[in-house]
Design a protein around this nucleic acid. Sequence first.
DNA 1: GTGCTACTACTACCATGGTGGTAGTTTTCG
DNA 2: CGAAAACTACCACCATGGTAGTAGTAGCAC
Lengths: 212, 212
Amino acid sequence: MVSILLVDDHPMLRQGVAQLIEMEDGLTVVGEAGSGEQALLRAEELNPDMILLDLNMRDMDGIATLVALRERGVSACIMIFTVSDEHDDVVAALRAGADGYLLKDTEPEELLRSIVLASKGQPVYSPQLASVLASGVRDTRPDCGEMLARLTGREKQILRHISTGETNKTIARELNITEATVKVHVKNTLRKLALRSRVEAAVWVVENRLFE
Amino acid sequence: MVSILLVDDHPMLRQGVAQLIEMEDGLTVVGEAGSGEQALLRAEELNPDMILLDLNMRDMDGIATLVALRERGVSACIMIFTVSDEHDDVVAALRAGADGYLLKDTEPEELLRSIVLASKGQPVYSPQLASVLASGVRDTRPDCGEMLARLTGREKQILRHISTGETNKTIARELNITEATVKVHVKNTLRKLALRSRVEAAVWVVENRLFE
DNA sequence: GTGCTACTACTACCATGGTGGTAGTTTTCG
DNA sequence: CGAAAACTACCACCATGGTAGTAGTAGCAC
């Protein structure tokens, strides 16, 4: 069962989407939010599998909400669901870590199919965005520098050790802290970088030549 | 207690070295071999912590022995102990994975100190080799291509997956084999490449741009 | 045929890694 | 000053990774 949080400032639209989603086996709406603020609260409270996020909300920019969600470690699959097919919006969303981008004029069946696909980890984009995507924006992530800047000094230090293949134990020894503490830093680092393992972290560092 | 296997085709020299080693607390000679063939047998049989290996033996080249030892997964620290200070020999030994290189004219106390150091994982070289080492041969490893060539097709395939941060489970799924089989390949790959973890493997691949 | 290599699979075991939660200290900043 | 962030540490728990040994199958070479 895929749990979904709807974020949109139009109650009617939320209702429509919710109804549609509930009709599909395997999908369920566990919460709704009408603003960025509420989205942050609900996301942490409900820990949904997926968040459908509108970009154009009154109180808080959708992109800002997206960034805030990611920074708080919300691991949900975040799908943008909006009216805007503006190049800049799409790019910004992808850079901020969106897992998909659907336009609101998508047909209901298409929307459902996309949600199911996305819930399986596959990024989904509306076909209308092909031109934008093709122009090489595929790199879903923010700048490496930006990402690195989110880490504390200690975390960067430990990331560097990870990228040389060291174990938590040896890192602890070299930094004169306990392995437990190293684990804490590793965990926080992985969360902030939205990576799933130290191997991914090591590869990311080396590929982007981050400490050279 | 550091267990040592002596490999040299001169019994008298073996005896002398053995006696010297036994005088040192913490070191012990667990076996001797007078040829490359014997060295392979003894190494697998005794699984020593360290192997002192002569380069100039009648039946089998010392370098060949070294390579064969490494290919069979002998994890011992292998110290070359020989008369040759030829540039090519030193380079070949280092490339083949030697952990140290000592000349036979080394003073007894110096030899002991070196063995102790090496047993702690520190590579040790006779000072006379400074010029050779300085000329940039520090890279202990064979060519990446050479290393890769030692892997089977399946192993290379799996290494590529590792280098993208995948887990054994997902690799198994994608290749339609069981996780247990993936583990076998991972283990063999790590052994052949003399690496200690998949993280090191991933970093190695990315740093050397092996699959691009 | 015999022998060798590669590939597959399984078991069992232990080490390592990652998550969640709690919590005390110090540093930083408004 | 007080709040927030960073760093430290420990616990318990579960997932993943790595090692060792055994073993069956297929293909290839001598």
